[in-house]
């Protein structure tokens, strides 16, 4: 039996534990603990972003510049493509990932350990490496084409790369571990006894799943999907390697604008829009899930 984990003791204001007794001392300590990280993030993330957006577009031009970008067919296209690819990726990873997370949730410990390991492992691998592997597989001399030729299904190698299909395939492969693990964590919080209760009261397996488990897993589904979607929005490597011109995503456009065309202004505007969308989505996620649970806040 463990002692109570009393990082927050039962009574309101006092903390039991070695502590600084005089108030000013507490504040100094807190300040010292938090100052470095705050400084670092503010100086190396917040300030640069603010400066960039300020510099790029100033004063009266702002509205005009944004409207120009938002009306330009090129950029509308890119935004739409980005949304399209991100959505497809999210949906597909959800469809594939939910059953796997489910199997993990109810699998025996040994089974779970092995499968978990095999899922987490690719998580560690470089995006470039993983996208590159698809290049090899889907290329003209790649294994898929070789198989098709060998099976006699086609006469010549099919162009599989540089298409919507190849991009989505690559992105799904990269995002699957994130989806599966997030869903799994959420499913762990669902008490299995609830299904037992449903069973006892006459529901068969399918019913107790659809009526009890699935609804309970929905918050987890939303959370995981949001996470995947937001990450997919900002993807660069996979669409650049595996996609053609009509699969250009917004990060690619921005990189092009900034580093080759040196049009920082348009790049920044596109960036604001991306950041705006990302922030809204994350705020929604925070509402549903309270992201500070990740690092132990309550």
């Amino acid at each position: 039996m463990n002692a109570l984990n009393d990082n927050h003791p039962p009574h309101a204001s006092d903390k039991v534990g070695p502590r600084w007794r005089i108030f000013p001392k507490t504040d100094i300590k807190l300040f010292l603990l938090l100052a470095p990280i705050t400084l670092l993030i503010v100086v190396f993330l917040i300030i640069p972003i603010v400066i960039m957006f300020n510099k790029a577009v100033s004063g009266d031009e702002i509205l005009a510049a944004y409207i120009e970008v938002l009306r330009s067919p090129v950029y509308i296209n890119v935004f739409m493509t980005t949304l399209k690819i991100a959505t497809m990726t999210t949906v597909l990873t959800l469809i594939l990932g939910y059953p796997v997370a489910f199997a993990l949730r109810f699998g025996k410990p040994k089974y779970r350990a092995i499968v978990l390991m095999l899922i987490v492992l690719p998580y560690w691998l470089d995006f470039i490496v993983r996208s590159y592997s698809w290049m090899i597989l889907l290329g003209r001399r790649g294994i898929v084409n070789e198989a098709l030729l060998w099976l006699g299904l086609v006469d010549r190698p099919v162009k599989l790369l540089y298409s919507l299909g190849s991009v989505v395939t690559g992105m799904v492969q990269i995002m699957l571990p994130m989806m599966i693990l997030t869903l799994f964590a959420a499913m762990l919080r669902i008490d299995a006894k609830l299904m037992d209760a449903a069973n006892i009261h006459g529901a068969n397996r399918w019913k107790s799943f659809t009526r009890v488990f699935m609804p309970l897993s929905l918050p987890g589904v939303y959370g995981a999907s949001l996470l995947v979607f937001v990450t997919a929005l900002g993807f660069y490597i996979t669409p650049a390697l595996l996609g053609g011109p009509s699969e250009t995503m917004i990060s690619q456009s921005m990189l092009l604008l900034a580093s080759e065309l040196l049009d920082w202004k348009t790049a920044s505007i596109a960036g604001t829009l991306l950041l705006f969308v990302t922030t809204i989505l994350v705020l929604i996620y925070n509402r549903l899930f309270s992201i500070d649970r990740l690092w132990g806040g309550e």
Binding site: F44, I49, G234, T278
Partner: peptide, 24 residues
Amino acid sequence: MFNALILSALITPPIIKAMSIYLF
């Protein structure tokens, strides 16, 4: 506020981080 700070470090799209810090 602090949570928001850490969140922003986690979730800002790489391209934005890259462009802004380069200029900085």
